[in-house]
Simulated scan of single mutants.
Amino acid sequence: MGRPLIIEVRVNEYAMRNSNPNVPWTPEEISRDCNEIREAGAAVVHFHARKEDGSPAFDAESYAASIRKIRAGSDILIAPTMGQIHVSGDATRFQHYVALEKMDLKPDFVPIDTGTTNIDRFDFSTNTFDTKHKVYLNATETVERFIGWTHDLGMREQLFAWTVPMLRTGQALYRMGLLKTPVHQTFLLTEGGILGGHPGTVAGLKPFIELLDPAVPMVWSVGCKEGDLLGLVPYILQNGGHISIGLGDYGYRELGTPRNVDVVRKVVELARQYDRTPVTPDGVKELLGM
């Protein structure tokens, strides 16, 4: 057995189907993908509730419909989104987790971004921004509040850092005694014209790794919003990281018209070359002390 590897699949985000027709939207499609990716070696799924036409859905029942079907088909751990910039107000952003707990459909993880960034998209073909007002706001008091509410509901926080300042904030939260340990941390690189995160390259990832505080116990993974993560997978595996990948971030048309399971199989293939063994959901719980 090689060193353990957590594979999380970001199955849909808010991606439409122009990049890949296999992006899952409906509860049936999401649960189907979960069954397939779990069988292939993934242990965690991150999903966004969507309507049948692919538009975002933010009501608790839309999340519940997918979670019911996911749990009926597999034991994969579940991390539904908080809604990013599409929902405002702390209580409103968190309300579906509260409702899901009351429905006995409590997710396993709550993704929490530990800082603020701009997510306007820059068009390199015209050298202009498509928008100039999209601020993804996460004040420190908001982040602390989300962590407290997450613990109150018996769930585990998953911190996301788009930039080094967000990583430093997460490490400060650990020093405050606010986080479960080891810290569950994802570095989210950004491409596709989104300049609010580090680029999806080795140069973009290295500062995170170099600035890890050895006094902070951490299990870290890497994702790439709107970018191809596969080229970085060997570097991540060699440096002890875990993988957060999926059609929600990038269509992977280099593989044809893949499904999420095809991307997972590619990661597993690479993992074997670097002596990394995908873990089960129980393995994730063991690594995170859950």
Rank of each mutant, 00 (worst) to 15 (best):
K134W: 06
K134I: 15
L137G: 06
E141C: 08
T142Y: 14
V143F: 00
R145H: 03
F146S: 03
F146R: 12
I147N: 07
G148M: 08
G148Q: 12
E157P: 13
Q158P: 00
L159A: 06
L159V: 04
A161E: 04
A161M: 07
V164Y: 07
M166I: 01
M166Y: 01
R168W: 04
G170Y: 04
A172R: 13
L173Y: 07
L173V: 07
Y174H: 14
R175A: 11
L178Q: 07
L178G: 06
K180W: 00
P182M: 03
H184A: 06
Q185K: 05
L189E: 13
L189R: 10
T190L: 09
T190M: 12
E191N: 14
G193L: 13
I194L: 15
L195V: 13
H198M: 10
T201A: 13
V202A: 14
G204T: 07
P207K: 12
F208H: 00
A215D: 15
C224I: 00
C224D: 09
C224A: 12
E226F: 10
D228E: 14
D228L: 01
L229W: 09
L230A: 07
L232E: 12
V233R: 08
G240A: 07
I243L: 03
S244Y: 13
L247Q: 05
D249N: 13
G251C: 05
G251E: 04
Y252N: 04
R253V: 08
R259L: 03
R259G: 06
V261P: 02
E269A: 14
Q273V: 02
R276M: 11
T277P: 02
P278A: 04
